[in-house]
Amino acid sequence: MTADNGFTLSIMTTCDQSAHFNTISCGFVHVVLTGQPIELPLGFSDIHNFYEFLIPLTPLRRFQIEDQSVDCQPGQIVPINPGQRHGVKFAQRDVSYILLLICAERMTRLIRQINVNAFGFIFPHCALPLRPDIQHLISRLIQENKCPGSGCEILMHCLAEELLVLLVRHYYQQPASLDWAAPEVLVGEQPRFRPVINHMRLHYAERLSVEDMAALCNMNCFHFIRTFKRAFNTSPYNYLTQIRLGNARRLLIETRLSIAEVGRRCGFRSPSRFSAVFQSQDGQTPSRFRKEHAKF
């Protein structure tokens, strides 16, 4: 791991602020620190293919992640997923922070290792409490880089690995069972499947065959199933089922439609099939789920 190895973000080249940053880098993790307070200019935004974790050292108000505004305070951490535009609408002065930037491929691989059932690789983009163990690891990385001893690179690589595991352990969340939807942001190998993901989201109530889905990506069925599972850690059919179940939960909560009609509208061809799949995923029948969560 080395310092100031040429890694840059767009803010580093804005208003000649590169001298205000210190960077500690290894192959899959970059730690970027503001060496002195900086100014975030009016309308500044950035977008890149890293997983980013913003740790404010001074208050950062109305920070934008896509169309969501987040107030960030010291003692918090804000995850930003690959491909999410983020920045500020209004100029902010005297801002200090730490950024953790992590290779998307390395992070998605780790998520699969830790959570074998993961089918989405998206962190919640909101301000969360900064855990003391993560804060301690960052401090150790900074200190080891500042005063390197024997075995420095090995130790820092191990610290970086541990940091990734703790970020996933504390902040990664499977899509919520009450509100699952195919993610807007696709990472790693996933963007190649955007046509079929969009089709699933729009046509989940229809009968969709593997042949139809493969054709949308210009692949044969065998290659489509194999590469889809590698990218999403689940089969195309299971992914589609999760979309159907997410919409079924919403209808059960928000409407008075019969159980059979909810199932039919969400692509399940019989009430018995809908109930069986729902119970296998949620551990309760659709009727029981409605009684516990209905808004009427």
Rank of each mutant, 00 (worst) to 15 (best):
G188K: 09
I80F: 01
F274Y: 11
Q92H: 09
H293E: 00
P56G: 06
H136N: 11
P195G: 06
E206V: 03
N81I: 06
A276M: 14
L137Y: 02
A118T: 07
F90W: 04
I122H: 10
Q92Y: 01
A19Q: 11
V32Y: 01
M213V: 09
S177E: 13
S270D: 05
A260T: 14
V185T: 14
L60W: 03
P82W: 04
A214I: 05
V95L: 04
I111W: 06
C72W: 02
F232H: 08
L167D: 09
L216C: 02
A231H: 05
L216D: 02
Q284N: 02
I24Q: 05
M156T: 10
T234V: 14
L240W: 14
A176T: 07
G83D: 09
F278H: 03
A214N: 07
W180G: 00
N233I: 04
L9K: 08
E261V: 08
F274H: 02
L216R: 14
S258H: 01
F44E: 07
P41W: 06
F232Q: 08
I98V: 15
L54C: 04
T14A: 12
C147A: 09
H48I: 03
L178F: 11
E211V: 15
R93G: 00
F53N: 01
F21W: 08
K291C: 08
F289A: 07
A205D: 12
A260E: 15
H203Y: 14
F7K: 06
T227A: 05
R62C: 02
S25R: 10
R109V: 02
N233H: 14
F53M: 05
T8G: 00
E254D: 12
P56Q: 11
R249I: 02
Q36K: 13
N5E: 10
A118D: 03
Q84W: 05
R106W: 02
G149D: 07
Q242H: 15
A176H: 15
L257M: 14
I154R: 12
P79D: 02
I77L: 14
C103T: 11
V78A: 02
H125S: 15
S258W: 00
G35M: 01
F53I: 06
E189P: 01
I47G: 00
F50G: 00
S25T: 15
L167G: 10
L40K: 01
R230K: 13
M1P: 00
F123H: 07
F296Q: 11
L202N: 11
G87I: 02
E292C: 05
C152T: 10
L54K: 04
F289S: 06
R85Y: 07
F193E: 08
K146W: 09
M1R: 04
C158S: 13
V210E: 09
I98A: 07
